[in-house]
């Protein structure tokens, strides 16, 4: 090597290449585009949302900073407390149904039978159809006068078969079906029903994927160890599918908690705010009444709850990974 000779000044290109060969530099360069997108499309709206929730902004004004004033007002308002309670109730009940029915469906689909693949694909349908469309279909089915539900009920009533007919006669009188979406106690049940219908495929297919990772040998071993069908489910299936189940359930809680389309199309929060959720309330306050500051505050109220749920999930996954 001729060390005395001074190397020629490296060109810009050469210097760039050398820089990129440094892993630290290259790492940041590769991350930059994604980081930029996150900043523009997630961080900016989020920070803006937080800021707006701290102002008394109304559509058309720039709004002034009022600290936690919006939150104070919310906690004093009945409609907010109702919506918060509804959201918790809606999420809890819907998730329980989706998890239990989803597991049941997955176990059924996991059996070997003819047309298994077609059946599995069909189960996914509610998941594929755009929510707005399918929800409109449900809206039509729930219609008090013309819908298929009440038509069927009326038909049953006219046939006067069994207890069903008697119940109809006593409670709802002749020729009238229940107001599925108008009756305060039925509306929430109806909304939950549609949510369960829509969310079920996701649960079933995810659980099915989980079930298929369980080695069939374990069931053979359990058979020989003396486990009945139910015991096998309890002692083998459930513990082994738990990690998948937790992820799916947490994910579903997050999505269900922030559900908007369903309620907006079916009831718009009615009757008497019985089905108002935080998401629809936020929309109503912010967009409907133009009170953007308040709407943002309602929406942000969901944040700590969902953050907690997600942190729990991350913690759980990490713990499972260590084991």
């Amino acid at each position: 090597m001729q060390t005395q000779q001074t190397a020629p000044e490296p060109s810009l290109r050469e210097r760039l290449v050398t820089a990129l060969e440094n892993q630290r530099v290259l790492g940041y360069v590769l991350m930059a585009p994604a980081l930029l997108l996150i900043l523009i499309f997630i961080a900016y709206p989020f920070v803006l949302g937080v800021w707006m929730s701290l102002t008394d902004k109304i559509v058309g004004t720039s709004g002034t900073f009022i600290g936690l004033g919006n939150y104070d007002k919310l906690f004093a308002s009945d409609i907010f407390l109702t919506a918060a309670w509804n959201t918790v109730f809606f999420t809890t009940i819907a998730t329980i149904f989706k998890a239990v029915l989803g597991m049941w469906l997955a176990v059924l689909l996991n059996r070997k039978f003819r047309f298994a693949n077609i059946t599995r694909a069909t189960v996914l349908l509610p998941f594929i159809v755009p929510t707005v469309l399918s929800t409109l279909a449900w809206l039509w089915m729930f219609d008090a006068t013309f819908s298929v539900f009440n038509w069927t009920l009326r038909w049953l009533w006219q046939m006067e078969i069994g207890i069903f007919g008697l119940v109809l006669k006593e409670n709802w009188g002749f020729f009238r079906g229940p107001l599925w979406l108008g009756d305060p106690s039925l509306a929430m049940a109806s909304v939950i029903l549609v949510n369960v219908w829509r969310g079920l495929p996701f649960f079933a297919i995810s659980f099915l994927a989980g079930l298929q990772t369980i080695p069939p040998d374990l069931y053979d071993a359990a058979d020989i160890d003396g486990a009945s069908g139910w015991k096998k489910f309890w002692h083998v299936t459930l513990p082994l599918i738990k990690p998948v189940a937790i992820v799916v359930i947490v994910f579903s809680i997050v999505v269900t908690f922030a559900d908007f389309q369903l309620v907006y199309i079916l009831t718009r929060g009615g009757p008497n705010n019985e089905t108002h959720l935080l998401a629809t309330l936020a929309y109503q306050l912010g967009m409907g009444s133009g009170n953007i500051g308040q709407g943002a505050a309602v929406a942000l109220f969901m944040l700590p709850i969902l953050a907690f749920v997600i942190i729990f999930q991350l913690w759980y996954l990490r713990r499972e990974g260590v084991r």
Partner: peptide
């Protein structure tokens, strides 16, 4: 059914229950 045949089987890839300890695996039956 297998559970009433009073036999025990050792599988090629052992088929141990991954979520149970050795003691629980052995005592499960």
């Amino acid at each position: 059914p297998p559970r009433d045949r009073d036999i025990a089987m050792v599988f090629q890839n052992y088929a141990l229950y991954p979520h149970m300890t050795v003691e629980q695996n052995m005592s499960f039956g």
